[in-house]
């Protein structure tokens, strides 16, 4: 295996984590990762050694995710999406309930906000790196991040979008 293919393999667990958080279900997430790797492998020579391979892979994964979201655009039923999210164990420990609520809230975020929140909060990308990965200005990264975090906090505080009648999934 070449050195760069080696580096690619090393990134798989992280790609899976990001995809899982993004897609909300394990099967869809691994499909995304597989498509991403299938695209990246033949283009390994386009990746410049010494640059951040993970950012390069995130960019590929982002493009795939955006395409998939477009295909699903005619399916506006958010509740259905939430129902398909992986449910947590029915353990009523406070932390578990909170995490499973967060999982639900995350899936209700607009995808473009979800992407930014995950890249910065979980993957630890700087605003600038996030902007490069997503192909948007740094200012847009910041505004999406702010909106996304605020929406998640409102969700966690029990403000469930009132007028739209989104119900809480236990």
């Amino acid at each position: 295996m070449s050195a760069s293919a080696d580096l690619l393999v090393v990134q798989i667990p992280r790609l899976r984590r990001y995809a899982r958080a993004l897609a909300g279900d394990a099967v869809r997430a691994d499909d995304l990762v597989q498509d991403c790797l299938a695209r990246a492998l033949p283009r390994l020579d386009q990746w410049q050694a010494g640059t951040d391979m993970r950012a390069w892979l995130f960019t590929i994964l982002h493009n795939l995710f955006v395409n998939e979201c477009r295909r699903q655009a005619r399916q506006p039923d958010i509740a259905a999406l939430v129902e398909s999210a992986v449910p947590g164990p029915y353990d009523h420990a406070e932390a578990d309930v909170r995490l499973s609520e967060l999982q639900n809230g995350l899936q209700r975020l607009p995808p473009e906000q979800r992407e930014v929140v995950l890249l910065v909060s979980i993957e630890g990308l700087s605003y600038r790196q996030g902007a490069r990965v997503l192909g948007i200005p740094v200012g847009t990264v910041m505004s999406r991040l702010h909106r996304g975090r605020q929406a998640l906090q409102r969700w966690m505080n029990g403000e469930r979008g009132g007028a739209h009648g989104l119900r809480s999934v236990k």
Binding site: M1, A5, P13, R16, A21, A95, Q103, I122, R149
Partner: peptide
């Protein structure tokens, strides 16, 4: 904000320790 970051890690970091499905590994390690 910090709590949110921490909760997101708690939710998704376990994925890092899952064994990677064979279909995803381009070459055997």
């Amino acid at each position: 904000y910090r709590q949110l970051n921490q909760d997101l890690h708690s939710l998704f970091d376990p994925v890092l320790n899952e064994s990677v499905p064979a279909a995803l590994v381009p070459a055997v390690r």
